[in-house]
Amino acid sequence: MSSEERNAEAMAVVAAGKAETLLAFADALVAQGQRGQTQAPAEVRQYVAFFLGETEYAIPILQCREIVRLTTVTRVPEAPAPVRGVVSLRGHIMPAVDTRLCLGLPGAPPTPRSRLLVVEVTGRLFGFIVDRVARIIKLSVPAIESSAEGTAPLGVTGAVRVGDGTVLLMDADLLLHARLGAVAPNTRGEEA
């Protein structure tokens, strides 16, 4: 069951005794304490790197739920421009977003190497269509932070040098926000 379905109307709350609720509370506190400890200076973050044309981009691995082969995209009449249509991820219907169009690049027909980066934003799933997925890269936090300079297209938060090349850092959340309007938790199913 995907997280959006969990948010949907028939969300199932498993009856839990008070003791379990309190235990969960305690667990969360402990986890928070640990997270505080790991915020050491040399933190490394992982990114999923992919190509659009010849340019390499990367999004935080934490935003990316999975990477799947691009299957048939069903066109949706009157969908906003960067949305190519919808696809089914094991029965869950999610919008397929053309990452090229999102970043203001010219569109390109899908190839066998095309992939769908499944991104989770506030409990909703979106598929980002990319030309091909390259690799997982590790970046240190200082490098990421110092990269956010100058003017960049919407959704691109910085650029870092990796080896001989440059990788543009992308924030899926910001991009969706800019291109598809406010990304609030899904409410469509609740409509009367």
């Binding site: 949706v76 009449p77 029965g91 909703r124």
Partner: peptide, 19 residues
């Protein structure tokens, strides 16, 4: 019947999708 994501609210001619 499966709901469409809120990003597709503008697609007024559709009420959902199915597989």
């Amino acid at each position: 019947v499966k709901p469409l994501d809120a990003a597709l609210l503008g697609c007024r001619m559709l009420s959902g999708a199915t597989v």
